[in-house]
Amino acid sequence: MSEEVRKRLCEEIGVSGEEYRVRKMIKEEIGSFVDDIRIDKLGNLIALKRGRSDEKKVLFLAHMDEVGLLITGIEDNGLLRFTAVGGIDPKVLLSKRVLIGKDKIPGVIGFIPIHMQRGEEVKVPKIEDMRIDVGASSNKDLEGKVEIGDTAGFSTQYEEVEKMAKGKAFDDRAGCSVLIEVIDALSEQKPFFDTYFAFVTQEETGLRGSGAVAYEIMPDIAFVFEGTTAGDNPELEEERWSTHLGEGPAITAVHRGWVVPKWLFEYVIGMAEREDIPYQIKRTTKGGTDAYRIGTSARGIPSAVISVPCRYIHSPVSLMNLEDYANTVKLAKAIVNTEEGINVR
């Protein structure tokens, strides 16, 4: 897949609950390459690629939504109050640009200048004390343009420099992008089993979209593709890194609320080794993914998590290593095309 598609995918804004633009883009991208495509009641996009065998159903899943802001108030002077959608450290919000609502009205989150901070302890404000400035001088300027309930996303440009990519929302457009590449590759070859590709909503607000997909499809096995945390910065000891850029896709053994079944964990590792794909095992167990929701649905569905390591996620700008990304795609393709199928236990 081209840099151009990754750029469009990562620059598009789809804060949880308003994933419609991302969904439309993905639908257009994959629509003609799949056997069935539909949108469910929670806004999830579900595509089917029929396999050589319909004995089992495999689910590949990534979430379309990203962290962002929700407009909660418009003040008389035209400034906007907001709250966070998903986990955002208030520290990354000061002096940043956002795009608001369906018309993507540009705005900025300002801060009092350092010149006025002397002699008093000025701290990073709470999110409820920050404001977005869109250039309006009164609330009348905003009529028909910005409304309470609109969401706002970061306006960061996507760019690839050497083997690194810079942009926003790699959590989880990286995963969406991996799925799109797998679908592309299947235009010439059928997967072993019937394979569903789900692009789900509202992961960041508490794993809300994926449960509906689990019940709709009732897959025998699921693979969740993520852009996950990399904390390999100069402050941190290696055990806190979570993942390390350049070491390949990160395979999760256990995270919040979910232990990947041992046989499945070993299966993913075995596949990486068989295909000679570098991989790393995720070093931390914090944070959850849709694997928890899928895994604990119905009678329990074996679910694995495979991630592209990304630095500085849940902020306006993150970095990922394109070799890690390409290796994640390679691993996903190997799983979908496995010649003997998957022996689900």
Binding site: D89, E235, Y312
Partner: peptide, 10 residues
Amino acid sequence: VIGALAPHLQ
């Protein structure tokens, strides 16, 4: 870019 540790890891 000036790095910011993801909230998950703080």
